[in-house]
Amino acid sequence: MTQRIRKQLLSNHTSLNRMVLGGLLAMLSLTTAAAQDLDVNQDVTVAIGNEPPYTELKPDGTLSGAGPDIDRAALQQSGFKAFSGVTMAYGAMIPALQANRVKMVSSGGLNIRPERCDQVIFSEPVMCTAQAFLVRPDMAGKITSYKQAAELGIKVGVPAGGTQGKDAVARGIKMENIVNFPDNTSAVKMLQDGRIDAIALNGDGVLDMKKRSGDDKLEAVIPISDTPIDCAAAAFNKSDIALRDAYNDGLKKVIASGEFSKIMTKYGLEANVGLLSKAKSTAEMCSR
């Protein structure tokens, strides 16, 4: 090999290294720019189901509940300051995200499910719960599972668009025995009036329903034995990767600082802290 050929090969190799380095720097620049393009001055509109103690929109418009408190704390780590709540049925939340009518669904809203992961992107898990029943005294001790409810042919109230209705049908309850309720107060009234025989919700939600009703005769059945423990997370439009990543970064800091535990305790959801520590990652929950 002549000296001139060796020099040419060395020159080509150097040029290739510069091209690779340039490409990497360009990618890093784009990533940094994307992070800088995150508008922290925007009003973050948060979709909620108005289901205390997870989410609640006060009469004065204040966004409250464990989910919104965590959402604010996580995004405030990146400089976000303005938040507003929009109440809607669970079944309307993903379409609202996809149409950019809201910026996110609160972490107190949607459970992570593979079919939902095809439509939106989730943060890491925030709230892990078990499904539960709220029943009248005449049903106490008769049902601990959806399968038993199906065998008895009773009517079960579920939140419109929630996972409870799907799980109930999957475990044998007939569609005509599934009754959607618009809000928790209406659900309790339906139960007390005998229009439904049980309410299916998450455990903490059922306990809050019972407490707010002031009816000590109602009984909580926790957990519904033939359902898994579910984890909810904040949900975002698939194009809002930077916003989701900012949320995840903030969530880690909120958990590490102890603020997460304080918020859970404030709303009577201390058990969530232990459940979350054992939860799978969002990637694992999204896998089929």
Score class of each variant (00 low, 15 high):
Gln3Asn: 05
Lys7Val: 07
His13Cys: 06
His13Val: 03
Thr14Gln: 11
Thr14Phe: 06
Leu16Met: 03
Asn17Phe: 10
Leu24Gln: 03
Leu25Lys: 00
Ser29Leu: 15
Leu30Phe: 09
Thr32Gly: 12
Thr32Met: 13
Ala33Ile: 00
Ala34Gly: 01
Ala34Thr: 01
Ala35Gly: 06
Ala35Asn: 08
Leu38Gly: 13
Asp39Gln: 15
Val40Met: 07
Val40Phe: 04
Val46Leu: 15
Ala47Met: 10
Ile48Tyr: 05
Gly49Ile: 03
Asn50Ile: 07
Glu51Val: 06
Glu56Asp: 06
Leu57Lys: 03
Asp60Cys: 13
Thr62Lys: 12
Gly65Ala: 08
Ala66Thr: 07
Ala66Met: 13
Asp69Ile: 09
Asp71Gly: 01
Leu75Tyr: 01
Gln77Phe: 04
Gln77Ile: 02
Gln77Arg: 06
Gln77Ala: 04
Lys81Asp: 08
Gly85Ala: 06
Thr87Pro: 05
Met88Val: 10
Ala89Thr: 02
Ala89Gln: 10
Ala89Pro: 05
Ala89Trp: 13
Ala89Lys: 14
Tyr90Asp: 06
Ile94Met: 07
Lys103Arg: 02
Ile112Glu: 11
Ile112Val: 14
Glu115Gln: 15
Arg116Asn: 15
Asp118Thr: 12
Val120Ser: 00
Ile121His: 02
Pro125Val: 15
Val126Trp: 08
Met127Val: 04
Gln131His: 10
Ala132Lys: 08
Val135Lys: 00
Arg136Glu: 09
Asp138Arg: 12
Ala140Pro: 00
Gly141Cys: 04
Lys142His: 08
Lys142Ala: 09
Lys142Val: 06
Thr144Tyr: 01
Ser145Phe: 11
Gln148Trp: 10
Gln148Asn: 00
Ala150Leu: 07
Ile154Lys: 09
Val156Arg: 12
Ala160Val: 06
Ala160Gln: 12
Gly161His: 10
Lys166Gln: 15
Lys166Gly: 06
Ile173Phe: 13
Lys174Met: 05
Ile178Val: 13
Pro182Arg: 01
Thr185Asp: 15
Ala187Lys: 08
Met190Ser: 05
Leu191Gln: 12
Leu191His: 14
Gln192Pro: 00
Gln192Gly: 02
Gln192Asn: 10
Asp193Trp: 06
Ile196Ala: 12
Asp197Pro: 11
Asp197Met: 14
Asp197Ile: 13
Ile199Tyr: 08
Asn202Lys: 00
Asp204Leu: 13
Gly205Asn: 11
Asp208Arg: 10
Asp208Ala: 08
Met209Arg: 01
Lys210Val: 07
Arg212Leu: 14
Gly214Ala: 07
Asp215Val: 13
Asp216Gly: 08
Leu218His: 02
Val221Leu: 02
Ile222Glu: 15
Pro223Asn: 05
Ile224Phe: 08
Ser225Gln: 14
Asp226Pro: 11
Pro228His: 01
Ile229Ala: 04
Asp230Arg: 03
Ala232Ile: 00
Asp240Tyr: 03
Arg244Thr: 01
Asp245Lys: 10
Tyr247Lys: 01
Asp249Pro: 01
Gly250Thr: 01
Ile255His: 02
Ser257Phe: 09
Glu259Gln: 12
Phe260Lys: 09
Lys262Thr: 05
Lys266Ala: 10
Tyr267His: 15
Tyr267Val: 09
Leu269Lys: 00
Val273Glu: 06
Leu275Arg: 15
Leu276Trp: 13
Lys278Asp: 09
Lys278Glu: 04
Thr282Phe: 05
Met285Arg: 07
Ser287Pro: 01
Arg288Ala: 13
